[in-house]
Design a protein around this nucleic acid. Structure first.
Length: 423
RNA sequence: GGAGAGAUGACCGAGUGGCCGAAGGUGCACGCUUGGAAAGCGUGUGUACCCCUAAAGGGUACCGAGGGUUCGAAUCCCUCUCUCUCCGCCA
């Protein structure tokens, strides 16, 4: 959530930002609710002040007549207060509900645009592989090498679930460990996180746990959600805390399963492992002082690049446009790997994403620090170190060979225990 | 899942209806003291919101959370959550 005191002050900017992101929030509705809320607060406080003043009178010695008069007017006050407070609670709820839909401010350099085709490419690494044979997509490879069983996944759980088999199992484990070792050397604290989180935490991070457009599975009877990413649990880790400035930055590397409903996200670009309901991910999550978040964002991006360079996967970096940012992000960089099996002749596909969410998440989660004696909200950043499912696609498709085998990049070999996959 | 005990400020801990935003202590900050330090003495030490604003100031709320009783609740009642102990179940 943004700082609601800025609603009037930065009105035009906020309104433009909502438009740039192609979001649908009526800022004027929020403002009028804010005004109504403040009026009701004033009214309620005035009434409570009267009640307290009267309480002071009651403490004095009074004759029965005066006493019963005060009790009577106290009763009237009580009724009025209950009325106003009821109205206030109602208004407050609608106000917060609407206000929390206002997106974060956007970085001035973030490209303005509607969808992913408007993202700005800022760099490339590696060479797009040229094959002397017709490359297979990861579905075909996985099937021929008996690495992934989608049919069994459908039978047991449903569409977009799968079993990893044979070498794919060791890739799942080895890739996580590979990423964790790189992050460990940079001071990230490794964590295995809960795969479920309370709805309040989930919402605080900026995910909508409810509604048909939600990407989150909820366990209604338990007030819990299956996490879509460890960002949720890692972000909640320090909720309601004031972190001493000398403890910052806090850097976590969290492993979790990720569950996503992906309602209505079918299509050929979603085939196979690309868009699934469950996958494993190593997530970076960082809490910084406000003026250090931009620099940290570059560090997270550099780490993502280091990880995929080690896997010898060609990629490009894009600066995500406003329409594709997501409400909490101030700025977002994606790594898009080359995926030879994507589209007709290969295409870029997102494999990581790193966002600087500034104080947007910290405000709702109440994570703060002290700077020169005053309490301020921290900045929060997240980034994918390695999402196993999409890494598998890039790995299999880029490193396939003419004989149908898959070569394992050298740096990964010690983590998986073999240097190629073949039958 | 069952039984019991508990939850008060950074921490310990007092407080059974108005004199309590909350005693006392510890810690912390500043000052005095000292050659320097310790001790000692003094002063201060929460958060959020609303109003006002140049600055200052004023007000409301907060004693695990929510609800109730009452003119008035940290204090009485109800519900829930969490922590601890014991029992059950279980990897």
């Amino acid at each position: 959530m943004i700082d609601l005191k800025l609603l009037k002050e930065r009105y035009e900017e906020i309104k433009q930002n909502i438009a740039d992101r192609h979001m649908d929030v009526d800022l004027d509705d929020v403002l009028s609710l804010q005004q109504k809320r403040n009026e009701l607060i004033r009214e309620a406080e005035t009434l409570r002040y009267e009640r307290n003043e009267q309480g002071k009178q009651m403490k004095q010695r009074l004759n029965p007549d005066e006493r019963s008069k005060l009790i009577e007017s106290g009763k009237q006050l009580k009724i009025r207060i209950a009325e106003i407070e009821g109205e206030l609670a109602d208004t407050e709820q609608r106000y917060m509900e609407l206000a929390s839909r206002i997106p974060n401010f956007a970085h001035p350099d973030a490209p303005v645009g509607r969808e992913d085709t408007d993202n700005r490419e800022i760099s490339r690494w590696g060479d797009i592989p040229s094959f002397s044979f017709t490359p297979k997509d990861h579905m075909e490879l996985a099937s021929e090498l008996d690495l992934i069983d989608f049919d069994a996944g459908v039978k047991v759980t449903g569409t977009k679930f799968y079993f990893l088999k044979n070498e794919a199992v060791f890739l799942e484990l080895g890739l996580q460990r590979y990423a964790l070792d790189i992050l460990g050397s940079k001071g990230f604290v490794p964590m295995v996180t809960p795969d479920l989180a309370k709805q309040s935490v989930t919402a605080g991070i900026g995910f909508n746990p409810r509604g048909s457009e939600s990407n989150i599975y909820t366990l209604e009877e338990e007030d819990l959600c299956l996490v879509g990413t460890a960002e949720i649990t890692l972000g909640g880790y320090h909720a309601n805390e004031i972190i001493p400035a000398e403890n910052l930055p806090v850097k976590f590397a969290g492993i979790s399963h990720c569950f996503r409903r992906e309602a209505g996200a079918a299509g050929q670009y979603s085939k196979g492992l690309y868009r699934v309901h469950q996958f494993s991910k190593v997530e970076m999550f960082v809490i910084t002082l406000p003026d250090e978040s931009e620099e940290m964002h570059q560090e997270l991006l550099a780490l993502e690049e280091e990880i995929f360079q080690g896997l010898e996967i060609p990629y490009r970096v894009v600066d995500t446009c406003t329409g594709d940012l997501g409400a909490p992000a101030y700025r977002k960089f994606d790594l898009e790997a080359w995926m030879p099996g994507r589209g007709d002749a290969g295409d870029w596909g997102e494999i990581t994403s790193t966002s600087n969410c500034t104080d947007y998440q910290a405000r709702r989660l109440k994570v703060r620090t002290k700077i020169d004696g005053s309490t301020v909200h921290v900045h929060m950043l997240n980034g994918t170190a390695l999402a196993v499912s999409r890494a598998l696609i890039a790995l299999m498709e880029n490193h396939q060979r003419f004989d149908g085998s898959i070569m394992i990049p050298q740096k990964l070999v010690p983590y998986v225990g073999f240097d190629k996959i073949r039958r």
